[in-house]
Simulated assay, not measured.
Amino acid sequence: MLTRQRKELLLSRLKEDGQIVAKSLSEEWGLSEDTIRRDLRELAGEGLLQRVHGGALPLAAPLPASPAMGNFAERQQISSDAKPAIARAAAAMIKTGQMVFIDGGTTAVQLARHLPADLKCTVVTHSPSIAVELADHPLIDVIMIGGRLFKHSIVAMGPAALDAIAQIRTDIYFMGVCSLHPEQGISTGDYDEAGVKRAIAAAAHKTVVLASPEKLDTASPFQIAPMDSVGAIIVNAGVPDALLAPYRDMGIDVVLADG
């Protein structure tokens, strides 16, 4: 079979079945898997399909942009009922004596508000909003990271913030993101903010993503990290199982927050 004929058959099978499994097709057609994989790579290079592990899929439609790209005031109105439930589930993860990093963002502010009055721990943050929320907490020690204020997320950024973050090791990092997607990973709308979040995650034993519903299966311009760097995702209990299955399949702990 000529290369051109194989490629035409591959595209025809992809259209019919919606996917190509290289191993199954090699057995059916009596061809080596290497031959099938090579043809798939070339077709992907021509922009005719999407290569995935073990085969190919049709070209994906562009992922929707996250509504979390709006300014702080606008984001406070999005999923306003969902965020307190996520915050309560996150607060329940923190144990006495731990050192945790709480990110900036509207869901993170809710987390700070839901920390129990009898919780004794250390909170590190680069968010003035989080620090103010915890100023009157009787038992929580607050370490404030400084730097240039990034007004979109109300957090400190820049070289000073990165230097301070590099000196601290935390048990849990509660990360706020604009978007998360099984293949595109966790992402945000600013290049420098992505780098700061990456640095915080690198200094944490576990990263927990606070994922209000509008952020799932969306993509923002700048990747923070692939999904395999995430230890857990906290989502609302009403999110469809089909939307969460890919994350569970990666071994990520999906925590369902009840309203």
Rank of each mutant, 00 (worst) to 15 (best):
A199F: 05
L180Q: 08
Y173L: 02
Q19E: 15
V109I: 14
K83Y: 14
V109Q: 13
G238R: 07
D118M: 07
A91K: 01
M69C: 05
A135H: 12
K23E: 14
K7S: 11
A131W: 14
L244W: 10
D103E: 04
R113Y: 11
A160C: 06
T106Y: 06
S129P: 02
I78N: 02
S79Y: 08
D253Q: 13
D228A: 03
S179I: 11
D241E: 10
I154D: 00
Q50G: 01
I102K: 10
S24R: 10
V155C: 03
E193Y: 02
K206A: 14
M1P: 08
A89D: 12
A164Y: 10
G251W: 10
L9P: 02
A68V: 00
L43S: 05
A56G: 00
L31V: 12
R51C: 11
A92V: 01
H126Q: 08
K151H: 15
I233V: 14
M157Y: 00
E33D: 15
A135G: 12
V21R: 11
R88Q: 14
T3F: 05
G185C: 09
G30D: 15
P213C: 05
G104V: 11
A112R: 02
L49D: 03
A211I: 11
T106G: 01
P240Y: 03
D217E: 13
H181G: 03
A112P: 09
A73F: 09
V124I: 15
R6M: 10
I168V: 15
